[in-house]
Design a protein around this nucleic acid. Sequence first.
DNA 1: TCAAAAGTGTTGCCAATACACCCATGA
DNA 2: TCATGGGTGTATTGGCAACACTTTTGA
Lengths: 229, 229
Amino acid sequence: MNQYLQADKINLAIDCCIFGFDGENLKLLLIKRNFEPEQGKWSLMGGFLKRDEDLENGAKRILNELTGLDNVYLEQLQSFGNVTRDPVERTISVCFYALINIQDHDFELAKSKNGYWFSLDEKPNLIFDHNDMVEKAIAEVRYKAALHPIGFELLPDKFTIPALQRLYEAIYGYKLDRRNFSRKILSTKLLIDTGEKDNNSTTKKASLFKLDTEKYTSQFNAFHYFMNL
Amino acid sequence: MNQYLQADKINLAIDCCIFGFDGENLKLLLIKRNFEPEQGKWSLMGGFLKRDEDLENGAKRILNELTGLDNVYLEQLQSFGNVTRDPVERTISVCFYALINIQDHDFELAKSKNGYWFSLDEKPNLIFDHNDMVEKAIAEVRYKAALHPIGFELLPDKFTIPALQRLYEAIYGYKLDRRNFSRKILSTKLLIDTGEKDNNSTTKKASLFKLDTEKYTSQFNAFHYFMNL
DNA sequence: TCAAAAGTGTTGCCAATACACCCATGA
DNA sequence: TCATGGGTGTATTGGCAACACTTTTGA
């Protein structure tokens, strides 16, 4: 018991890397801080963990405070705990990353909190060690999306195969062969053809698919090798 | 600044899943607690993070306190933060896993601290959420060892290919084809034949290899697909 | 009727598997 | 000289990459 009394009490923060996809580029939701320290600079959305709150719930709360969204794909990335990472006071941050579907939601709440979407190649410099967090989160998304079907989290409920391909190309930063991609994705049997067509197109309308959610959950830990890393 | 004052202070612990390989089975180093709470029960080696210590350094210190070892392969697994996980006081634990080479060291220090090596299938029930930590760590080691050459960390500096194969078989729990395994491992060009033979063998002596450390570090993030997951 | 994007088919190659055979060693 | 385990070779196969052609649509 003594040991608990002797333990140094340390602040525990949570920060969230929030990724989205606008159909073209992979994006990151950042906030312009209107509070000290580092007021006016860009950072990830974060906050302190409450005493009566599980870690995961803390991350959900913080995500919800900015976006208003629930039921979002959310994973713990890792904890960042260098002594000098927070200039104010010793603080450990548990970093999460979220994948959200931009296209089905407006982001009035986020805007009202000084939140803006940035393309990854336009990302401003961030406070503290948030640049490291983002770098690590991108690496993790690439790693994970190559083996597990997490990409769908970034798309609307109904999406076309070419849209899914553009997403993969955005994540990995290079072009893929249309025909091989389609075959590979369909071979997972995770997609259901809704029979509907994408009317946004000005040329041949692509078929709209949806996730087979049952297979998605049951096969999530199967390895699909969507990409060769 | 106010926010820092308002933040709930929380204990921050570190726990280590320490894996070893005895040539036959994958093993886990556990300690029998001689202090409260849960005195007399088995747990992972752990401790509290100090105020002036980076997370990673805290993990190194805790690992060293039990084993006396430095320069060990150590990775952060994830943080565990359920409200009820520690019955004494709200405590977040950042869990690390270590891979160490059992065969080149005695473990007198560990023994003196009530540390014992367990085969995974003989693992006793552990305190708090340490069972979850171990489960997650094993999954992570399997995941990672399938793609990255971390297995070598568990072996002596010089090792035979059959020994490496037994390690992989222990990690994944099934038998592999000797000939295909050898070809696959050698094709990575990560191994250097020392020219020496393993004299422990009672039949044909296998060649001793060592890691090409330069290639190992430079190609660590290459993907070798040692196993089909 | 033309340009642009979607959908499907074919071929060749490489890499993983499933095998068989030979060699070295100590009992 | 025999049992045990180590080392190497080869045929087959299945999956992936590279490629060409057809279809649909709006302008």
